[in-house]
Amino acid sequence: MNITAKAHEDLILVTVGEDRIDAACAIQFKERMRELTQAPSSRVILDLSTVAFLDSSGLGAVVAVMKLLGPDRKLELSGLTPTVAKVFHLTRMDTVFTIHPSLPDGLQKAG
């Protein structure tokens, strides 16, 4: 699964290079995220701007990753495409995550 990470000081930027996070790849997604966030950081930003579709299994995997990171590390999301944003909104999970419309300044194109 094409997911890459780059450290920026106290933050890890994870970029998903797939167009779907669905039931067929939710377990791989979770495992890959676990590997990529091993290094300590206070924040993890997950760039979902290329992900056109996420189902409830994909949503569950994102929630699971948030729990894996522990209570002191934040998982933030960036670049939700319309259908992905809709799944977060309908399930009210948009109230749980910090969601950035696009990557914060200084991180764009940096990864």
Partner: peptide, 24 residues
């Protein structure tokens, strides 16, 4: 039914499917 959003370590990881279907 939409799973309840509780404390951070008790967030639901599933049970959304039929809510999504029925609501749409």
């Amino acid at each position: 039914l939409l799973p309840e959003i509780n404390a951070w370590d008790d967030l639901p990881e599933g049970g959304f499917g039929w809510y999504l279907i029925r609501s749409q």
